[in-house]
Each structure stands twice: as structure tokens, then as C-alpha cells.
Simulated assay, not measured.
Amino acid sequence: MWFSSKKAQPPIRSLVGEGTRLQGELRFRDGLRIDGEVQGDVVADNEAGSLLVISEKARVHGKVKAGHVIINGEVVGPVEALELLELQPKARIVGDVRYELLEMHPGALIEGELRPLKSPDRPALKLAASNNA
């Protein structure tokens, strides 16, 4: 089976709903979805096994750090994804971005430095498809 080594996503246990505005640091475990606005840092306590979803309607003004980060809204501040960073078509980031693996869709915008996290046991770049069998 394709992608059989892919591990299961952590459950989303917390939600910042649309129309909600939070001010201050937001820490979470497992999974968090943001549909509202956060003025402050959003950081996973268990960074290596966490999932953060910043929806199309969401705005975050502060540092973002988690294992798997999916962005389709706006982030003003640095972003760090320790496992995978997915930038959906409406993603807008103003700040430096660090990632282990990156998936970027057409339309996503980054105004800042884009740098991979260097891991000694993994290559910095892995191609999804190759002509060599």
C-alpha cells in the first residue's frame, strides 16, 4: 500500500472558533484548529506529535510552532514545523519559516526567509517523483 509508513494524525481536541479573538500565548496538546484570531504565540506542548490547522478564516499574530502545521489563513510572525508544513492556496505568512518537510500549493505567499530544519539522518530535500526506477 502507498504511504503505509505515514503515521496517524493526532486528534483535534481544541478549537478557536470563527468570531473568537484570543490575546496571549496559546499552548495546546495533540491537535488544534484555529478559525478565529489569535494575538500571541501558538505553541504545541508536545511539538513532535502535534497538529495545528490555521484555516482560511484565521489570523495569527505571533510565533507558530508545532509538529505538523497546515496553514490556509494569515500568520504574521515566525513559523516552525518540526515534521511537515502544508501551505494551502490562501496561506499568507509574513515572517521567517522553518520546516522539516514542505508542501506548498500555488497561490500560497511567504514574505520572509524560507529555510529547512537540518536533520542529520534525513536529506534536506526529497523528491516526490523521479524518472529513475
Rank of each mutant, 00 (worst) to 15 (best):
P116G: 07
G49Y: 02
A133Y: 08
A108D: 07
K118V: 15
L15C: 01
Q39Y: 13
A133W: 08
D121R: 11
V97Y: 01
P120S: 10
L127Y: 04
D35M: 07
D41A: 15
L127H: 11
E103T: 11
P10W: 04
E83Q: 13
A66K: 05
I71D: 05
I93G: 00
Q88M: 14
G40D: 08
E47N: 00
L127Q: 11
K57C: 01
N72K: 05
L117D: 10
K90R: 13
L101T: 07
P10G: 03
P89L: 10
A133T: 12
I110K: 01
L15S: 01
G107I: 03
V76R: 14
A81D: 04
P106G: 08
V64E: 01
L101K: 14
N132P: 00
A91F: 07
G112D: 10
V53F: 05
E56R: 15
I54G: 06
G112V: 11
L125I: 13
S5G: 12
S4P: 00
E80Y: 00
E113C: 01
G19I: 01
A81S: 02
P78N: 15
D41S: 14
H105V: 09
L102A: 04
K90A: 12
L15T: 10
I71E: 05
A81K: 04
G77N: 05
E86R: 09
E111T: 13
P89C: 05
G73S: 04
G49P: 00
H105K: 15
F28N: 07
L117G: 02
L102V: 04
A48D: 15
V16I: 15
L117H: 08
K63D: 04
S55C: 08
G67Y: 03
A66C: 08
R29C: 10
R27S: 09
E83W: 00
V76T: 14
G77M: 08
L109T: 09
K7V: 14
F28W: 07
D96N: 15
A58Q: 07
A8P: 08
V42K: 07
A8C: 05
L26Y: 13
E56M: 03
S5I: 03
E103H: 11
N46P: 00
L101S: 12
A129I: 02
G77V: 11
L125F: 14
V60E: 03
G49L: 04
V97I: 03
D41C: 03
A91C: 11
R27N: 08
L84R: 12
G49D: 15
D35F: 02
A81W: 02
G107D: 13
G49R: 09
V16H: 03
S5T: 11
K7C: 01
R115P: 00
P78S: 15
E111R: 13
F28K: 09
V79I: 07
S4G: 12
A8K: 13
R59Q: 12
N131A: 14
E103P: 00
D35S: 10
A58Y: 06
P11V: 02
L85F: 02
E56H: 12
G24I: 10
L22P: 04
E74W: 00
R59H: 06
Q88R: 15
L32Q: 06
L85M: 08
G40A: 08
L22G: 01
I34D: 05
S4F: 13
Q39S: 11
V16A: 09
P89Q: 10
